[in-house]
Structure formats: C-alpha cells, structure tokens
Nucleic acid binder design. Structure first.
Length: 819
RNA sequence: GCCGGGGUGGCGGAACUGGUAGACGCGCCGGAUUCAAAAUCCGGUUUCUUCGGAAGUGCGGGUUCGAUUCCCGCCCUCGGUACCA
C-alpha cells in the first residue's frame, strides 16, 4: 500500500513544520561548534531567477550538511535593497523606488520559503532600512575623524542633454542610454575611502585565504597590483615645476625618447596657455570614455606640449607629449617613454616618428632589431654609459643610488589599486551624513542626529535626476556646530558600502544600541561564503577592506571576513546568460508548481559542478523528477513490505549481501568527500543514483537481505537530505524513524565493509589496453607481472617482440613496453 | 587591451595525485506493459571498421612507458575591468 509522490502538498506540509517549530532559528551556543554559512544576499529585482535558485541551493546544501555534522549552523538571508534598477523601475512605472523595493522583497521572501531554504528568517535585514544604514553613516563619520575618508575631485560620465550623471552601464557606445547624447567627462568633488592605506595588508593576507579559490586570489593580487619602481623628477625648461614620473623599468632610463603626461596634468594646462591650439585636443580627450577597457583599446593619440625635459644623466633635451592613454590617477600622471623596450611606447613612437633607441640586449647574446618591434624582456644594459653591462637588479640599484645622490629620485612602491570613490549622484541610496557650513566647513552629522533618513515618498522626473537634490526640506539644515544655515550633502553612497558589512550585521541584526555586539565575534568569520564569480574582485575586496576597518574601530577581532569561498558559475540557456532582454529566462515559480522544489533543487545541483556554468535543460529537470519518483516508489514499497531494521552480523552475510554493503559504504565515503572536502554535488548525486540502481536490482527478502537493504536506503535518504529536504523527511518517516531528518547525524562508513579479496587490473601493451585481469589483493608485483604476460591477448600483441620494460601500478594497471 | 575561468559523445557532465576516456543523467533506438497513449520497467547507445582492430578530450607542437591531466604557441568562448549588482 503506497501513496503517490505529491511534492506540492508534501512540501507545504513540511515547510509548515519547520516554520512552527522554528527549526532554523539559531542562537549563540558555546557548547557547539558554530558554522556560519552565507550566500550573497539578494538584490530585490522582483522575482527569483534560476541563478538565485542555484546560488541559494548550494548554500542551503552546505548548511544542512554541516548541521547533520552536529554544528550550530546559522544561515541568514536579507536584501541588498538600494540601487539603480529601483530608480529605473520608478521612472518606468511611476512609483517610488521604496514602494517597488518593499513589494519585491515580500514577494521574493515567499519564493525563498517555497524553495525550502533553511534560513533563520528572524535575522532578515534590508539595507534600505534606516536602522541598517544608520550604522554605515556612523562608521563613515568615525572614518572621517581617522582620516580614512576624504573629498577630492573625481571624474563622472555626464549626459549634457539630460543634465545627469550616468553610471558606466548607462553609457552605450559612448552615448547616454536615454538621450543618445555623446557622454562627456566631468570632474566634481566626491567622497573617497582610503582603501590604499590597506593595500599592503589586503595583498599579504591573500596568502592566508586557504579556503578561497586560487583564481579569485590571483585576480585580487593582480588587481591590487603592487609594483616596485623609481619615482624621479625631470627638469623641464620654461616650466617652473619639476615633472615627476614613475617607472618600474629604471634600467631603460637611457632609452627615454619622450615623456608623456595625462591630459588632466597641470603641465598640459600650462601648455595650452602657451599654445591655445592644444585646447581642442584636450577637449577631444574629455569626450573619450574613462573606463579601463575603453582606455586600453582606444587609438593612442598625443600632441607635443611644447615643453622639453632634460635627461638627468645625458643632459639631452627630451620632448614632453600630452597623451590620451596616460592615467592621471595612477602614479604621478606622467610617464617616461622608452619605445625600444615597451610595446605601447613603441607603437606611439612609430606613429609620431619619435626616436627608438635600444638600451637593453638579451642575456643570451642573440641579436634583436628594435626598429621591428619592442624588446620588453629584462636583459643587459647597453648605450647606458657607466651602467653598461649591468643586469636589471644591478642597474636598478645603481641608478637608484645615483638619482638619490642628485636628490631627484627614490624607490617607490606603487599599487594599481585606487581609492574607493563612494559618492553617487543618485537618489536610491544611503545619504552621506555630511553637512557643509559656510563658516565651519565640512561637518559630519553627529551620532545623536543619525540616521540621516532618505525621504521615501518621492516623485521621479523623467531624466533620472535625484529627487532629493530638488528638496530644500531635505538639504536645508542648521549647522550642527554653529547653528547657522547650512547645506546637507545630497549625494548617496555607492551600494557596495552596504554590501561590504552586512555579513557582520547578521550576527545581531536588531541591536539598536550598537552596530555589532559580542554575537559578531561568536559568528564571525563566515565559515562558508557562496556567491557568483562576478564578485571576485570588487565586492569581495571591499568586504575584506571593511572588515579590517571594523576591526580597527574595535568591533571585530578577526582579520578576514570569509574563511571559505565558493564562487558558483552562471545559469545559461542555449549557451547564453539568462536575461529578460534575450527572452531565454526560465521561471522557477512555474517549475516549483509543476515538479516541486525538491526537483528544482536536485536538478540545479546535479546538472553541473557548482563552480561551472550550468546549461539549463527542461528534459534534465524531467530526469531529476523521475529519480525522485523512483526512490519514492522503491522506498515506499520496501517500507510497506516491512523492511528490516534489525541488526545483522557481517560474518553471516552472503557474498551478494556483502557486495551491497561494500557498495553502500563506498558510496558514503565518496559522498562525504564530495560534500565536505570537494563541495561538488553532481558527483555525489550520481553516486547515490548508482547505489539506487544497485539496490533496485538487489532482490533479497531474507532477514539479512532486508537489513542490508535498509542500511542502504537509509544512507541514501540521509545523504540526499541536504539536497532534497522535503521528500527525504517523508521517506525517513516511512522507514520507521521519528523526528526531523535535519538533525539526524550524517552517516559514517565502515572500512571493514569495504574489504575486498580481488581487484581488477588493466593490462596495457605499449600504452594500449589489451586485457583486464582479476588479481588477488595480496598478489605481489612479480605475480601480477607473470599473470599479465601470460594473458592470451597480451601474448598476441607482444609476440615476436622484445619486452623492454614492465610497469606495474599497484591496484591499477600493468603496462608492458615491447619493441 | 589587461586579469581570471572554460572548451571531452547527439546534449549536461565524469575521470579527485600523470594510470580503464565517456561514471551518472538527458535524448535516441529496440523490447515489455496497455484497446491506445501517458507513466513505468528491461536492454542498447563515442566514431569509423575489412569485426582483427583503428581513431578520439578546441587547434599545432613537446615531455613521458603512459597526457583530458604537465610544458610551449595559437583559436574560440565566458566573467571582471573600479558608477550594474
């Protein structure tokens, strides 16, 4: 007597039990090992997509597995609620961003619950809640006191028609996405965080992130981009300032044939005074995009500034150019160019007919021709006066010393990493807690006046300008210091500010007295962080930075926020990222209605390893559903047939029964490794399917037969419980067990059950498979070799040839080399 | 451009430390069941083949008894590139 698998009603029923019993509600418990599992919180876009389902299922599987290991597991969820899409939706639907956001959050929370995710919903937070961002504002004012935030001019994309600042995403082929106008660069004062003050620590501690993927660590190292070089000053004729350049290749100093400065460099401004015709070139540079990819691929252009610098060793005059590819924000905003030994300088020199002078030759004595292309390897110096014959390190030090002696140069460590500009000229974000007073200057909002609340009931105008910039009731305030009329900052924070510390706030999300209390040090660092690879640099670097800020303000004691990181791949359909604009989305809601959450969860874990991209397949979902129906049917029948839960004695088992036990325990071993060490679930599921196949074929109604079957079915149910929590809960009951499977200990394997007398070995002749033989486990190498050579097929392929070598790989194969 | 991934049957993928290439699943083919269908169950399924075998993991080389795995050089593709999150 078995019932049909009906996931819809079953899942509702079990979710109700979790809800009523507060199964996933956790508190700090010093008697248990804690495990904080965090999936990157959601942007409340309105509906769950398959990327969410995958991300959150991975985190959920790890959480539930860790709980079965007996740990005190916290898994929270919240919303990264500020951001650009809410503003776009506001304009499109004529609603306030707040309303749109809150409605989406409510809707998505329901969808999360339908997926059966083991979240502690009592900890839910939203970053647009003043109770959340109040702390961010407080931290900002504290950092201002410490000198870790400052205001400086920075470049933004300016849409001259809509009269608004555009995000990079809103610039398409150099034009504003709404107006279509050519976007210009505009410089405005903005707040910055001194992440560069932590560059060295952020770099060196990457070495301690053992639980992070190497690819992410490499990307972060390269992003920070530490380099050792020399900063040296050139005298410039008729220019009453020195021109400082930074170079990592001082060994090529004698090959300098021009200097180049960024268009924003003061020297460029001076050059215009002398030669007004240069203004049009500078104007052109303003129209170019400032993002890195555009800078790197655009045509390299320059103009002679009219100034000449003097070479510090040869005394020769070197022209100074203004070039569009020199970054004002890196190094000194000026470079020395050595065309013979730098690809970009070489291209530029060829284009403008500038000298190319070789000063490095290869160490192996081979000859090169720098008129054919740059030679960028390090080598030995030539044409470099007293430095001739030196290698890179010798010349670096010798040149450094001579420049230092002249007082015009010193060694300098530079980072590619730039300070973090956090001002946004947008509405839907956390207000920057600063007041500008005519008398007192820049005044941080005092703690008693925090939070500075963002007005939520606003009307958007069509060009996308921020409503609070038109609201005197928001920006007209009294100066907190002197009480005179003053003006509030109307820019808001970059939304990365909120997502850089939410992981800590989950420890005490409702504490209104302080940002973080002792619970933070119980839960932190996060034991397992799960999220998309697209966050490899920005979010993960900012979060590491923020954690160190919180540490240095005395709130946390750990140095790093995330012990282990799993970066999951994207969900694709027909080889492309699922997106509304491509029309290739799959709605999880419909799938849950049709198959139930367990099927959707099983498929998203089975179709690919977590770190790879996942190709969506409707038929594959069907297959996952089929497997669940299969175990439902078989376990129900087995249980109805009164399966055996009695103990058995290993010595009384038949060979078949022993073989099943062996398979069961091999599977437990493999699946435990996949879950705990490799964090790869598709192979774990495949192993469970294999055991299921074996078990379905295993027909043995004897007492011992039922007992070993029961052991195997129970193991499958327990191992699948983290992945498909609803069906396994029900099957666990059907197998005659009480209580929730979430708290059942993870199965352990018995080495004795896996002992074998005989193994199969592959026999190769010259690396090609020719035979398979069964060999006693105890057989010696010589015995194995003799058996292999005696094999009929092996004889056939080695006949008339001389055996040169026999390689025996114990437990695997024998390779016989003949010729 | 630069930084980091990926490329294996018709498809998703497996092969974990250099040792049986294609586990598991999908699809397809054949069979059982059925009045019929769906569902389910059983068997087969890399390609070529003279049925002995041979070839085969993006392409071209290399190291090795042995390479999907290591090295060199390419191609394609995805993510990031500092104001999408």
């Amino acid at each position: 007597m078995t019932t049909q698998y009906n996931p819809q009603s079953l899942e509702k029923c079990i979710q109700k039990v979790w809800d009523e019993e507060k199964t996933f509600h956790v508190t700090e418990d010093s008697n248990k090992e804690k495990f904080y599992c965090l999936s990157m919180f959601a942007y409340p876009s309105g509906n769950l997509h398959m990327g969410h389902v995958r991300n959150y299922t991975i985190g959920d599987v790890i959480s539930r597995y860790q709980r079965m290991l007996g740990k005190n597991v916290m898994q929270p969820m919240g919303y990264d609620a500020f951001g650009l899409p809410a503003e776009n939706a506001a304009i499109k639907n004529n609603t306030a961003p707040a309303k749109w956001t809150y409605e989406n959050m409510e809707y998505m929370t329901n969808q999360f619950k339908q997926l059966g995710l083991a979240y502690d919903w009592s900890r839910e937070l939203a970053t647009c809640d003043p109770k959340y961002y109040k702390w961010e504002q407080l931290i900002f004012t504290k950092l201002l006191e410490k000198g870790l935030v400052y205001r400086k001019d920075a470049t933004v994309n300016w849409d001259p028609v809509d009269q608004t600042v555009l995000a990079n995403e809103q610039v398409i082929d150099g034009r504003g996405w709404r107006s279509g106008a050519l976007v210009e660069k505009k410089t405005i004062p903005q707040w910055s965080m001194k992440i560069t003050a932590y560059a060295e620590e952020l770099l060196s501690e990457i070495d301690n992130l053992d639980g992070w993927p190497d690819s992410v660590k490499t990307m972060q190292r390269n992003w920070i981009g530490k380099s050792k070089g020399i900063e040296l000053d050139f005298e410039v004729e008729d220019y009453n300032d020195k021109l400082s350049v930074y170079t990592t290749r001082p060994d090529t100093l004698f090959g300098v044939s021009y200097l180049a400065v960024a268009p924003e460099h003061p020297l460029a401004q001076k050059a215009v005074e002398k030669n007004p015709e240069l203004q049009s070139f500078l104007d052109d540079c303003k129209k170019e995009q400032s993002n890195e990819a555009a800078m790197a691929t655009m045509e390299k252009k320059g103009k002679f500034s009219g100034f000449y610098a003097v070479h510090p060793f040869t005394g020769k005059k070197v022209p100074v150019w203004i070039a569009n590819f020199v970054l004002f924000s890196y190094g000194t905003g000026a470079v020395m160019a050595v065309p013979a030994h730098d690809l970009r300088d070489w291209d530029f020199a060829k284009k403008y007919g500038i000298d190319i002078k070789q000063v490095i030759e290869p160490t192996d004595g081979s000859s090169i021709d720098v008129s054919e292309g740059a030679y960028i390897e390090k080598g030995l110096l030539i044409n470099s006066a007293q430095f001739n014959g030196m290698n890179f390190d010798e010349s670096f030090n010798a040149i450094k010393q001579e420049l230092a002696a002249k007082g015009i140069g010193k060694e300098q460590i530079n980072y590619r990493l730039r300070d973090w500009g956090v001002s946004r000229q947008r509405y839907w974000g956390c207000p920057i807690p600063i007041i500008y007073c005519g008398d007192c200057g820049t005044v941080p909002v005092p703690e008693k006046d925090l939070p500075v609340k963002l007005p939520e009931d606003v009307v958007f105008d069509e060009n996308g300008g921020s409503p609070i910039k038109q609201m005197p009731e928001f920006y007209n305030v009294a100066c907190p210091k002197c009480g005179k009329d003053a003006v509030r900052e109307t820019d808001t924070f970059d939304t990365f500010m909120e997502s850089s510390w939410y992981f800590a706030r989950f420890a005490n999300p409702h504490n209104d007295e302080t940002i973080l209390d002792e619970a933070a040090n119980y839960w932190l660092p996060v034991d397992q962080y799960v999220g998309g690879i697209e966050h490899a640099i920005l979010h993960l670097l900012y979060a590491r930075f923020y954690h160190k800020l919180l540490r240095d303000l005395g709130y946390v004691i750990s140095d790093e926020p995330f012990d282990n990181l799993l970066t999951q791949g994207m969900v694709l359909k027909d080889g492309a990222k699922m997106s509304k604009s491509k029309g290739n989305t799959v709605d999880p809601k419909e799938l849950i209605q049709k198959y139930g959450a367990d099927t959707v969860r099983l498929f998203s874990m089975f179709a690919a390893p977590p770190e790879h991209s996942l190709e969506w397949s409707d038929e594959g979902v069907e297959g996952s559903y089929r497997y669940l129906k299969r175990i439902w049917q078989n376990i129900s029948e087995f249980a109805a047939n009164k399966g055996g839960s009695e103990a058995f004695n290993q010595n009384d088992l038949t060979a078949e029964q022993k073989a099943l036990r062996c398979k069961t325990h091999e599977t437990i071993k493999k699946v435990s490794e996949d879950f705990g060490v490799r964090k790869i679930f598709n192979t774990a599921i495949a192993a469970c399917m294999e055991l299921t196949n074996t078990l379905v074929k295993f027909k043995d109604d004897s007492k011992n037969g039922k007992a070993v079957s029961n052991e195997a079915w129970s193991a499958i149910v327990k191992m699948l419980a983290p992945i498909v929590p609803h069906i396994t809960q029900e099957l666990w009951s059907q197998l005659g067990n009480d209580g929730l499977i979430v708290d059942v200990p993870w199965p352990s394997y018995d080495d004795k059950a896996m002992v074998k007398d005989e193994i199969q070995m592959m026999i190769q002749v010259n690396g090609k498979l020719r035979a398979k033989i069964n060999v006693a486990v105890s057989a010696s190498k010589d015995e194995i070799e003799a058996m292999a050579l005696a094999d009929e097929n092996v004889k056939k392929f080695s006949e008339g040839k001389q055996v040169r070598k026999v390689i025996v790989v114990p437990g695997r194969l024998v390779n016989i080399v003949v010729s």
